[in-house]
Amino acid sequence: MADDVLVGDDMLSEDIITLLTRTPGTVRVLLQDLPPDLLRADEGEGTFSPFSVLGHLIQGEIDDWIPRARWILEHGRERAFPPFDRFAHIERTRDRSLGELLDEFETLRETGLSALREVIAGGADLDAGGLHPELGEVTLRQLLATWAVHDLNHIAQITRVVAHQFDDEVGPWKAYLPILHHEP
């Protein structure tokens, strides 16, 4: 087998790192220079605007992904990790500029990826178990895969929220636009 061929956990780790590496740039391209009415649009009460999605992604970098990975490796299934406040970003991002938040997300993600690479290089058992405060038993592998899919979910959310701002304007073409058929 060639040295550059990855298998098993190595392939999973590299796929996850590849996806996680792309998110800050993707979010920057989607949000930078977006008109304020699109940047702040949402899908109703309790939903996120594209700006809020960015704040939520930042909060995840601070309180969720790497802290939970470390928690799993340190505590296993002995103690559930602390709950994640999905709305903590609202107060934290109030009165901050989009550019500042985009830069912060890129910096935090680089730090998180560096920590993830250290965990993987250190031979962490991806099947190590932990306790989620609501979902019960989880593994490090599931957490890392969820991190990448969580990013993809919020990228889709950003595009969906922006697309919905043109819901009425597309007229009969709406029938061909599945992104407009989503209900929040």
Rank of each mutant, 00 (worst) to 15 (best):
E169H: 12
A80P: 13
P24H: 07
D33G: 06
G76N: 12
L102I: 03
F105C: 02
K174G: 13
L101V: 00
R28E: 08
R141T: 01
H75N: 15
L38K: 15
E106H: 09
D15M: 14
A80F: 07
L57N: 02
G171C: 08
I179K: 04
P178E: 10
L108G: 01
P184R: 15
L39E: 02
L98F: 03
M1I: 12
R28V: 02
G8Q: 10
F105I: 00
R79E: 15
S114W: 05
I155R: 14
F81G: 05
I66A: 09
I58V: 06
T111H: 13
V170G: 10
E14L: 12
I16W: 08
W71V: 06
Q59E: 14
L144G: 07
D15L: 14
A88W: 00
S97T: 15
W147D: 09
E134V: 13
E14Q: 15
D85F: 02
L12Y: 07
P50W: 01
I62L: 10
D85N: 14
E74K: 15
F105R: 00
E43N: 11
A121H: 08
S49Q: 12
R22S: 08
H182P: 03
R96Q: 11
H181T: 11
F81Q: 09
F84L: 05
R22W: 00
T21V: 13
D64A: 10
P83Q: 13
T139M: 04
P82I: 09
R141L: 06
A88P: 01
P24W: 02
V149F: 08
G130W: 06
P83L: 10
P67H: 07
F48V: 06
R109F: 02
E100K: 02
L131F: 05
R70L: 10
L19W: 03
W147G: 06
Y176P: 00
D125L: 10
G8A: 04
H181M: 04
G99Q: 01
L30H: 10
G76F: 08
G129H: 03
I120R: 05
G46E: 09
F48G: 06
R40H: 15
L126V: 08
R117L: 10
G44A: 01
A2Y: 03
E118W: 05
I155G: 05
T23Y: 02
V138I: 15
L140Q: 01
